[in-house]
């Protein structure tokens, strides 16, 4: 057994992931108001309390496991996936579900089959579909603004200032807009001229996507993640989008629009790369990432939901043991790979 080790630890890994999310949070806050900060705080506090409670119940040492930072990563990813103007209990329930059921009931850190944040998100999407659409309108398009205090009052009490109505504050996401307008029979070219769209993707959200890309690049450089999953995810999503767009550009949106969605970049660099629930062999990671990318395209284009990262990730989580078993790399001095 080695007497020396490099300086990495689970908490340093998790801290780097949190650090990599900060640029995206900054831009999010800039374009969509302070609600995301409230959401992040709610999720973090809930996650820490839930983690402490369940560690106590499981008679595990609280501090070492709490300090590993994995609960905070789950909380932040969840907060960044959920609509921030939803009532407070939505993110609280989602976080509780992620930490207690998706993580600890499966054995805790390192043992969960499914990505906890995506389990929390999917449960909320199915259980409270209406609340899951309360996305804040992007800066410049909203008909009204909430101050930080008003945001708090709305999230916790559902009270809006007298003159405001909810639909003045919220807005369909670019992906949702695209979906509904396509169903109405409008061509992609007309839809993308709508004010909710920016340069190549959604207004504001394309910049968040860029920030996720930057954060992901940092994680790659720090060797926290490897290139396989993000590259395969982005590659397969882009390839499918490119193919269908080339086939009929009026019905299928351009590949760069898909890539410039914040969910695609968050998914490719931060969610599908969750080591615990993802594939581990190099080839397996490519299959895993490419399959998620393809499923995201399929769900977005033909499925019942405007976005599909959560479902795509969860479906592929189920396939991980099989993928890993069939993609074992060649071992030194062995002739060929095993089946």
């Amino acid at each position: 057994m080695a007497f020396i080790s490099n300086t990495s630890s689970v908490s340093s890994v998790m801290l780097k992931v949190l650090f990599a999310l900060i640029p995206a949070i900054a831009i999010y806050q800039l374009y969509f108001g302070p609600a995301i900060l409230v959401e992040l705080a709610l999720a973090s506090i809930t996650a820490i309390l839930a983690e402490t409670l369940i560690l106590r119940v499981r008679r595990l040492p609280v501090m070492p496991f709490l300090m590993d930072g994995s609960a905070l990563v789950t909380a932040w990813l969840l907060a960044l996936s959920m609509p921030p103007l939803a009532p407070w209990w939505l993110i609280v329930i989602a976080t509780l579900f992620a930490i207690i059921i998706a993580k600890h009931l499966y054995g805790g850190l390192g043992n969960n089959l499914f990505n906890p944040a995506m389990v929390g998100y999917a449960v909320m999407l199915i259980s409270f579909p209406a609340h899951m659409t309360q996305w804040p309108a992007v800066e410049g398009l909203a008909h009204a603004h909430l101050s930080f205090g008003e945001t708090l009052r709305f999230i916790f009490g559902g009270d809006l200032p007298a003159s405001m109505r909810l639909d003045a504050l919220t807005m369909a996401t670019p992906l949702d807009t695209l979906r509904t307008q396509l169903l109405l029979g409008r061509p992609v070219q007309d839809i993308s001229a709508m004010p909710v769209f920016g340069y190549i993707g959604g207004k504001g959200s394309e910049l968040i996507a860029l920030a996720y890309l930057a954060g992901g690049t940092y994680l790659l450089q720090q060797r926290i993640i490897t290139w396989h999953i993000p590259a395969a995810f982005i590659g397969s999503l882009a390839l499918l989008a490119f193919g269908f767009n080339a086939f009929d550009s009026a019905r299928y949106v351009a590949p760069w629009f898909h890539l410039a969605t914040s969910s695609a970049m968050l998914g490719a660099f931060f969610i599908a790369t969750d080591p615990v629930s993802g594939a581990t062999t190099p080839k397996g990671k490519i299959i895993f990432g490419a399959s998620i990318g393809a499923l995201v395209y399929v769900i977005r284009t033909w499925g019942g939901y405007p976005d599909g990262v959560a479902f795509a990730v969860l479906i592929m989580n189920m396939c991980v043991p099989l993928i890993d078993a069939f993609t074992q790399p060649r071992v030194f001095g062995h002739d060929k790979k095993k089946p």
Binding site: S8, V10, P64, F65, S70, G110, T226, T280, P329
Partner: peptide
């Protein structure tokens, strides 16, 4: 701490094994 399947070990293994497995 529990293994988080980060595969740092697999990337470091000079024999190309999957130490996490």
């Amino acid at each position: 701490l529990p293994c988080i399947r980060c595969t740092q070990c697999a990337q470091a293994c000079p024999v190309g094994l999957q130490p996490q497995d």
